[in-house]
Amino acid sequence: MNRIDRLFVDLKGQGRKALIAYVTGGYPTLSVMDKAVKDLVRGGADLIEIGVPFSDPIADGPTIQESSQKALDGGITPGALLDWVKRFRKSHETPLVLMTYMNPVVSRGFDRFAREAKTAGVDGVIVPDLIIEEGGPLEESLARQGIHLIYLVAPTTPKSRREQIARRSKGFLYAVSLTGVTGARRALPKDVGAFLADVRRRSPVPVAVGFGISDPAQARHAAAEADGVIVGSALIQRLKNKEPLLPFARSLRHALDRP
């Protein structure tokens, strides 16, 4: 069974929400990232999303853009990240998802990418610039390796299309909380609850909400209508400021688990 599916089954049994932590691969360096991921897991993250830095990150705001560029300047490559996953897997069973734009995957070749990801121990892949109409071939390559392709829906996605996308998404469905790019926001849109409730009603897979979630209160608020929350830019900002991640991860965990 795919580690993502197992996670959501377990959480459901416990009546808990998933805490999904995003870090940019190789930011600020691969060794700092390695420690950050392990701290996040210790602090209660259930699933780790690793961003594969890309030169043109069109879905990302300034925080993740800057971290991607820094990581690229440091020489990070998809191959180096897959090697890191392989090492991480020797000590951790935490589900791992790669967030990558389409071009690096096209460049590597779908089958080769899927094989290498499987060998390393990747469980899912998020491709924000891939639409369902074009996703078939990559879905197939990944499915042959037991890896899930996770699609995204946004508040602007028409309702009938939310359903089509949800049916194609494996592992979970990524609900984008707002109209815009990634980045910590002071407040989430007022109608995020209604949006999530609608998405969740239509989705056969668990729904995780991300974009803009920057503190424990927001995480708790967003989680009310979702199966998990994704926190990214807020972690990257802390990494940038050399602040420890462990206490922040614990506070997010606590906010989600509090009855």
Partner: peptide, 18 residues
């Protein structure tokens, strides 16, 4: 490659970075 939502020719390195 794929850039800005279109499959077309793209100036890119061996890792698919533009």
């Amino acid at each position: 490659g794929v850039l800005h939502g279109a499959r077309t020719y793209v100036m890119q390195d061996e890792n698919g970075q533009v």
